[in-house]
Design a binder for these strands. Structure first.
Lengths: 207, 207
DNA sequence: GTCTATAAGATGATAGAC
DNA sequence: GTCTATCATCTTATAGAC
């Protein structure tokens, strides 16, 4: 593995395991087993290293989930994928990495750019699923798939951040969402009834 | 204002405006207009200062929202409160502060304690609303109010974190959630029908 | 309680030898 | 590309005068 890649991997691990506050040229270089000066040779600044690490990770991690996203064809399926994703994220920490990136991005335009990019990659993936799943439903008329995908992604980031601080609490949150799945099933069962109700309500709302 | 309070306020502002990575005894003391050594005299460590600042802020901020939480009596009302809350949070940054706290808490037990406490204060407030709003609904049988309150709170934290990086994207997310409000109205309208459907589904699910 | 001074270490970044 | 200095700066934290 090249030094460059060693640094990228080490930066990713550092973000996930230690958080953005403990990331420095020296801590990352030590973790990578390379010299500290090489951070600046290969990336110029620490922020650029972190940004590059985040970009590499989001690409790779979404490649892994892509098939599963593509296979989802129902609301309950989307929720189930969310649960599996959370279970895997507890080990992988791809989303936790994004949370750390965003936290550090508040006053760092380089990190902010990487954060927006990461968010956009996730948004695109979630959006296509949301669009597909809701297409046959009356709900499609009311839903803004782009915005909803952003909301779902942001919510997920908050959840993974919470998990790092209180795993039991986060587990309770996930379990609660699981149980809400029953309601989704009801909505799906209700198909025609709900469709009429939504249509009626929409006529009233759209002035 | 006492030096202690100046430091607490400065630490809160620093967290919201600059983020946890830029918080140090010196930056906060400068912002407070006091000597750097006083951080250690009053709080012992920087982490203790940050933790105290976060505790003070969550208490004060929730006092402000408490009446509004108490006034919510419907699902749509809860969603509407969420929107108003987000609008105010864009200026106040109480939730953004929690996000920064959680990001820094990954390897810092002092911050982690404060983060869990802040989360618990929010959870309690949200939980009571969720419980009250859903009590008359058939949904109450399926919902775990504690876990759901945690999920909602965590989602909100993710949203405010996202807002700091991409305000337009976050605004789109909020707008999408607003539009989902129409669906909530439908569910509320559907009352009796939904009740029967949920009951039926529950009989099937609970083996 | 507040200040100055200072220790002891970490940090970003560069120059120059190999 | 990699290493060894080396800087100037920033950091936490303490001792001691006021």
């Amino acid at each position: 593995m090249s030094t460059r890649d060693k640094l990228l991997l080490a930066a990713q691990e550092a973000l996930v395991e230690d958080g953005i506050t403990h990331v420095s040229a020296r801590t990352v270089a030590t973790r990578a087993g390379v010299n500290q000066a090489l951070v600046f040779y290969h990336f110029g600044t620490v922020s650029e290293l972190v940004a590059a690490a985040a970009r590499a990770r989001t690409g790779a991690s979404l490649d892994h989930y892509r098939e599963q996203f593509a296979a989802v064809d129902s609301l309950t399926g989307l929720l189930a994928l969310g649960e599996r994703l959370h279970a895997r994220e507890r080990e992988e920490g791809n989303v936790a990495l994004m949370a750390q990136l965003m936290a550090g991005a508040q006053r760092d335009e380089v990190l902010a750019g990487a954060a927006r990019h990461a968010m956009d990659v996730w948004r695109a993936e979630v959006e296509s699923v949301v669009r597909r799943v809701l297409a046959p439903s009356p709900v499609a008329d009311v839903v803004d798939a782009d915005g909803l995908a952003r909301a779902i992604s942001a919510a997920f980031i908050g959840l993974e951040l919470y998990d790092g601080v209180d795993p039991d609490g986060a587990a309770a949150a996930v379990t609660a969402l699981e149980r809400l799945g029953v309601l989704l099933e009801v909505v799906e069962d209700l198909g025609p009834v709900a469709r009429r109700a939504v249509r009626a309500r929409l006529r009233r709302v759209k002035r």
